[in-house]
Each structure stands twice: as C-alpha cells, then as structure tokens.
Amino acid sequence: KKIKIDLKKGPEGLGFTVVTRDSSIHGPGPIFVKNILPKGAAIKDGRLQSGDRILEVNGRDVTGRTQEELVAMLRSTKQGETASLVIAR
C-alpha cells in the first residue's frame, strides 16, 4: 500500500532516521524508516512508522539512490517548507 505523507519541517527537523537494507554490488538496496524521533515533524503528524519503505521524496523516485543521497534530499528541505514523501507499508 502506498501512502503520501507531507511533513512540514520545523525547528526540530523532520524527526526520523533511515536505514538501507540488502545493498549489493548491483547498487543500494531499498531505504526504510528506522526510527521516529521523540521530537520533529514525523511524531507530530503521526502517520510515518518505523519499517516504512521510502519510495519518493518531493516527487523524485529514490529507487537506486544511496542512503546519503536520500538524506541530502531531505536536508535540502528548509525549515518551514514541506517534505513530500511517498512510502510503502
């Protein structure tokens, strides 16, 4: 099931960490939400869960991207702006 979640970045950030699983010589594996932090946009919104697979960030497919690339995409969202995620659960 795909779910679109918009998180408005506040002073505590987006409020979640990510982890890559099953990376191989063929490229990075899928990226999942690792933890929801006690402060930040994710816990206020309440929909994002540990174990959700991140498919898109701000309309860009993240398949084949590294964890570092995904984190850079999320960090490029400025405070007060919205990060738009599509996740699979």
Rank of each mutant, 00 (worst) to 15 (best):
R75H: 08
K44G: 13
T20S: 08
K2A: 02
A88L: 13
E68R: 04
S50M: 14
I87T: 05
S76H: 14
I31E: 01
A72R: 10
G64L: 06
Q79G: 12
K1I: 15
A42T: 02
G59E: 13
V19E: 15
R89A: 04
P28Y: 04
N58G: 11
Q49Y: 11
T77S: 11
V62H: 07
T17Q: 14
I25P: 07
K1L: 00
V62M: 05
K9F: 15
L7Y: 00
A41E: 14
S76A: 07
S84L: 05
E12T: 06
K4A: 04
G13Q: 06
S76G: 08
I36F: 03
Q49D: 05
E81D: 12
I3F: 13
L7H: 00
S50W: 04
F32E: 12
N58K: 08
R53M: 12
I5M: 06
Q67S: 08
L14C: 03
D52A: 00
E69T: 06
S23C: 07
G64M: 08
A41L: 03
D45R: 01
Q67G: 04
K44H: 15
G15D: 01
T77K: 07
V19I: 15
V18R: 01
P28I: 12
M73D: 09
R60T: 04
K4I: 15
G40K: 01
K9R: 15
G51H: 07
E81W: 04
I36G: 00
Q49M: 10
V62P: 04
N58F: 05
V71L: 11
G13Y: 01
L55C: 04
H26S: 13
A41S: 13
E68H: 04
F32L: 12
G59S: 08
E81C: 12
P30Q: 04
P30F: 08
I3E: 05
Q67K: 06
P30A: 05
S84K: 14
S50C: 07
R53S: 12
E56V: 06
L55V: 08
I31C: 09
V33N: 01
G51S: 06
D52P: 00
R89V: 00
E56A: 08
I54S: 00
A72N: 06
R47G: 10
L7V: 07
V71H: 14
K39L: 11
D45A: 02
G59K: 07
I31T: 10
R53V: 14
G27W: 10
P38A: 13
T77C: 09
I5F: 04
E68W: 03
A41D: 12
T82V: 08
L48S: 00
G13K: 02
R21A: 13
D52V: 00
G29Q: 11
G80D: 09
E68Y: 04
R65Q: 11
L74Y: 03
A42N: 02
E68Q: 07
N35T: 03
I54R: 00
N58M: 10
G15N: 00
R75K: 01
I54A: 00
E56S: 12
V19Q: 15
P30I: 08
V33M: 01
N35M: 13
S84Y: 06
G40S: 05
L55M: 12
R47P: 02
L85Y: 02
S23D: 05
T63V: 07
V86G: 10
D6R: 08
N35S: 10
V62L: 10
G80A: 09
G64F: 09
A42I: 01
G46C: 07
K44C: 13
R89E: 04
L7R: 00
L70C: 05
A88R: 11
V62I: 08
P38Y: 15
G40P: 01
T77P: 08
S84V: 05
I25R: 11
S50R: 09
L37Q: 08
K44M: 14
K2L: 02
K9A: 14
F32K: 05
D45F: 01
I25T: 05
Q49A: 13
L70K: 03
I87P: 15
V19D: 15
I87C: 11
K8F: 10
I54N: 00
I43F: 06
Q49I: 10
V71W: 15
L37T: 14
R65D: 05
T66G: 09
N35A: 13
N35K: 08
I3N: 03
R47T: 12
V57Y: 15
A42C: 04
V62S: 03
S76D: 14
D52C: 00
G13S: 07
D22R: 03
G29R: 07
N35R: 03
K9G: 14
T82S: 13
E56W: 06
E56K: 12
F32V: 09
L74S: 03
Q49F: 10
F32G: 02
